[in-house]
Write a protein that binds this DNA or RNA. Sequence first.
RNA 1: GCGCUUGUAGCUCAGUGGAUAGAGCAACCGCCUUCUAAGUGGUUGGCCGCAGGUUCGAGUCCUGCCAAGCGCGCCA
Length: 553
Amino acid sequence: MLIQDLISQYIQDYLGTYLAENNNLNLQNKVEIPQNQNYGDISSTAPLALSKVLKKAPYVLAEEIKKVLDEKLKDFAEIEVIKPGFINFKLKPSAYGEILQHFDNTQSLITQTKNQNDNQKLLIEFVSANPTGDLHLGHGRGAVIGSALANLLKTIGQNIITEFYINDAGEQINKLGLSAWNLYKPDQAFEGADQYPAELIQPYLSDLKPDLKLEELTNIVKERILNKQKEVLKNIRVNFDLWFSEKKELHENNCLEKTLKTLESKNLTYQKDNALWLKSSELGDERDRVLIKSEGKNPTYLAGDIAYHINKFERATNLLDIFGADHQGQELSLKVTLKALGYDESKFQILFIQFVSLLRNGTEVKMSKRNGSVITVEEVLEEVGADAFRFMLLLSNINNKLAFDIDLAKKADDQNPVFYVQYAHARACSILRNACQDLFKEQDLKDIKSEILDLIMTESLSDREKQSTKDLILKLSFFNHEVHRAAETLNPSALAHYLIDIANKFHSFYGSCKVINPDNKNLSLARLSLIKTFQRIMQKGLEVLIIDAPEKM
RNA sequence: GCGCUUGUAGCUCAGUGGAUAGAGCAACCGCCUUCUAAGUGGUUGGCCGCAGGUUCGAGUCCUGCCAAGCGCGCCA
């Protein structure tokens, strides 16, 4: 077990004596690397955080914990209690060898969450763009975040389904059909129709048979646009388990009709002005909403959305939607309705992603659907490649609007975070390659003895060597913890930031510690073990985010 | 007007009620006969939007205000 896991485990065991019942403390987050060296290599604020719950002075609590830990950790750390109730651990050199040993002996770098209930299944819906045009950068952000999050949750052992909702019915499709028709048969054009800009539609009109009917044309263009979206998503490494067609699954399968009947049977609807209304204000919404429009008797988006979410609840226990910030109007109506129908609101969550703009030559390029100045995923991807595309969009928290700096994403130096991170990985691979070419055989790097690993922090090293080694090992030892924290907070960005952090610590280690040294083969082996661990963790971290980890650059 | 999100170094952002608020970039001074200089060491840089409150302790929680983005359709 890693030292910080031992610490939190022992504290938890000890505090458990205070809290026999209802003991679901999670102290993992209360054991950390302190900002300031003076506070030790690892520190815990558990006594401070828990003194209120346990009704005990934090300092007293800290002293008690110290007493317990002193005994258990005497080989690895010196423990000090500081004023209000901090517990600071100064690690002994052997602790670092122990961490290397731990990683040498551990196949899987990420622990699986305990499955209290194997029936739990989370359905994540994201992107869900209308099949009426190209994917823009905003869709790209949702796609990258959604795919990384889904992969992150899968990695810790959760049961995940990813889904794309195709809005292939309704007004937008009619509008698409008319827009296409007017370009296809200009002499028979529909006058005065609301249309999509011609340049968005034209690329999908090549090689058409001459005598198509409006409906046939609409379907062909819709299919072509959808296929294009699928292709672009594939290019940014975004895959879906299911592409859910509104038209097929909700309309033709009568799912929508069933939902309306259910709502009617629960007396949640009424007729007014020739339309069918939902009594949503009674359920907590700001006002009532229309379900079936008076003109044409077509369902509103909300009606379909409710039916779709009921359908999803039939296939999964938990739902997560990832929407653009412009969809927040949906949330309240949908949630109150689902609640009224008996679904557990705690099992349905929506994440809203703020807008993306594009920064080129230091100035912001505004996007506007109306005048056709949409920045597509495809055009940005072409310039920067999938790795930079993904990493740049992953770096900022979804609650912040983001300016995608396209010039930065193309740079091949330390200013560009994705290069910085990938370069660190390639450097590590290069050292491992060289080591096995000149001085060692592959076999030498396996099962390195603990006496040799302990040399990693040997006394005779310079301060800078010790410092950079220590920083790297400690940071690496928190990998599993960081992955789980990112998963719990549904925040893959945190993992991206962590990877920058370990890349930084690695580069620093590289700069101060010569790894391959024929005059000191044992120290070389210990350091190669560290490099190997770094390389594995970086590779795994990038894999979770679905970004390449190149071995050469 | 109401709701959601945001406001932290020149810029982009981390920050889980705890210690002297951190990182990257930019700026400035250094480091290649050395495993990838696509790199690294150091320096400079802060009324954490403002004002109250809760707390032993607030960037973090609460209230009000200011500013920005988005949302408040028989559009999707």
